[in-house]
Nucleic acid binder design. Sequence first.
DNA 1: AACGTATTCGCAAACGTTACCGATACTTTT
DNA 2: AAAAGTATCGGTAACGTTTGCGAATACGTT
Lengths: 390, 390
Amino acid sequence: MISCPKCSEVGSIMKAGYVRNKQRYVCKDCNYFFTLTNPESPVPRKKARRHQTTIIDIARSIGVSNSTVSRALHGHADISPETRQAVLNMASQMDYQPNQLAYNLVKSRTNTIGMIVPEFHNPFFPNVIIGAHHVLTEAGYNLTIMQSNESYPVEVSNTKAMLANRIDGLLISMTQETNNFDHLKVFEKRGIPLILFNRVCDHVEVPKVVVNDFDASFSAVEHLILNGYERIAHLGGPLTLLVSRERLRGYRAAMEKHGKSIEENMIIQGMFSQQKARIYGKYLLELENRPDAIFAVNDSAAIEIMLLAMEKGIRIPEELGVVGFSDNPESAYIGPGLTTVRQPTLEMGATTAEWILQMVDSETEIAMPTQKILKTELVVRGSSRRVCDI
Amino acid sequence: MISCPKCSEVGSIMKAGYVRNKQRYVCKDCNYFFTLTNPESPVPRKKARRHQTTIIDIARSIGVSNSTVSRALHGHADISPETRQAVLNMASQMDYQPNQLAYNLVKSRTNTIGMIVPEFHNPFFPNVIIGAHHVLTEAGYNLTIMQSNESYPVEVSNTKAMLANRIDGLLISMTQETNNFDHLKVFEKRGIPLILFNRVCDHVEVPKVVVNDFDASFSAVEHLILNGYERIAHLGGPLTLLVSRERLRGYRAAMEKHGKSIEENMIIQGMFSQQKARIYGKYLLELENRPDAIFAVNDSAAIEIMLLAMEKGIRIPEELGVVGFSDNPESAYIGPGLTTVRQPTLEMGATTAEWILQMVDSETEIAMPTQKILKTELVVRGSSRRVCDI
DNA sequence: AACGTATTCGCAAACGTTACCGATACTTTT
DNA sequence: AAAAGTATCGGTAACGTTTGCGAATACGTT
């Protein structure tokens, strides 16, 4: 017979339905509902999972408490040299690896910096990563990288993932689509250090690391003008990006300074795949009155222009001057060499990393510089050198 | 006066030493030890930290239990549409972001794949990363990257960090120093999926993804021989690496097949910085009886050779044939173009990622292929084309 | 009335660590 | 010898989440 687990009554037990396919009973006396638990499986929670040795395992095997083990492992005080040694020995013997997850949970910090970049195709961002990676590793931090792939939704989901993973700080360079910044303001609200680099915006008040795009563009175009080029076209980046607008502004400023008229149909803005660069380059070079120089937003576009010119028999630099941006490795070797703007990518990565470390390591609110403008360098090569300067 | 917190006695209180710089008392009556807790700070645990909203906050604010909130958030069963909606609303209203750390701890999986690479200077590993990153992101996994910097101790500490962070699987390409593999065997013992790529070894029984280094090397050297080169030097990689040994083997095999004598002083093995490549190149080109072709272990070394030859007025390919390895972007554009071996880097990354996903996603032990050998492609350019093959 | 079924929700135990604070056993000082 | 100090160690709450199982309720069916 079944007896009530509470009042031990036997006679007043009645069936009371099923719950999860198990018969359920009720004791009419004490109004206690219950099901019969199978005494055969007293430890149903025991999973067959592979067990990683924990602090508790060590503690049990040498008969101390887990707090003692924790102290020994971290070299804290309040522990005798003998027990510490015993713990250390047992730890290495049992092949103990600390569980960083649990550590992070209780300390609510992860020793990890996140980085979101828009693309991986140009060597620019990989180089920034190298620079940041080095500094962070030195400081004992990890770096997780996510790629937004030039997509705003992906960027938003990336920031959410970073938030969920409780990174200690975020470095981000935005996509060309991004024109809403709520996903970044969350970081401000939460007090999580955030730094923008390269692809920045004005709507978030955090430190920013950029290059002097305006100056770089200005001196690149001025260099073309000083080499006797008159009608300079501009293959610019998407105008959603501040860098593109700055470079366009530099282009215009240099042209105006030297009294060159700007032909608006020779300014093309957009995101150039190799294919698109070729199409627009074709358009420019087949123009009725074609430009005698082209300032391109990046080296891959510039190189595409050069190849196109070579195919058409247009001589570089005599008939066409070309200047790129970024100084890709191949730019030094193509044809007469591509004049281009070298960007301090490693330094950019290092600077963002150093700054985020400052922000993360400081307990209190710390005054950070609002912006750092890194200096670029115009690398003059054959593609634009028409006058003999010595 | 001080009264015992237990028996409220006043007369029998005596000092009993200090504990952590606070006066300690004992009640002689009830033998109760105690210190005086400062009633001014009743909540000493309350940190001034910024509070991230948790599941419990949501639960409290709409008067349900946290299990209900958890179920609502994950779209589980056993919940009414109304409460689910209420939870969802409150969650977005309170700007809730789940704490992945806690989730990972209880699920003991992180949805993260780790990757350790030896260096970042050549475009090879960044490209592998791109390939793997894409596949993993599609599958909803994160990728953490660490760099061993060609140092064995760093590699070991990297693997420890990966272990501590409880990654779900590891992709690794080893340093040139690594000749002990205990740090990798830990993964086997723990049952954590592990894949070796590119820089592999025979001592660990896990899936490996490599390229056909022997064949690639063989056909590169054979290509030189078929172009009429006789005395071919080899600037090889460090012999600690299997890839270097395989390439050397391919070189020897091709030379032997065609009956060319191998001059051992024309085989130089090592890890070549740009500077070292120049030194060894100088040595080779200034040899009494200098080689008429050089097969280099990578493109940057090959390019250094080409630049050196140009400086010396040695004509390429007429007087010197050069073949590199990897097909860096700049190799297409330097001088007459550098003949080189193109490696399927993206495919390598994608393959390792797909394999590790298979291993991670399968609950049980799964039979994996032991090895995948990806095909390279000899890209013939001007630096080695001496005969007109149509 | 007695029983069966379905729906919805709460309790509490994990996950592995850290750190506060109390407890114990000594040694040293008065 | 009493009182005070020192050195070690253990108990336990907390970090934020998931989940198995039981409880409560409502309603339908003999």
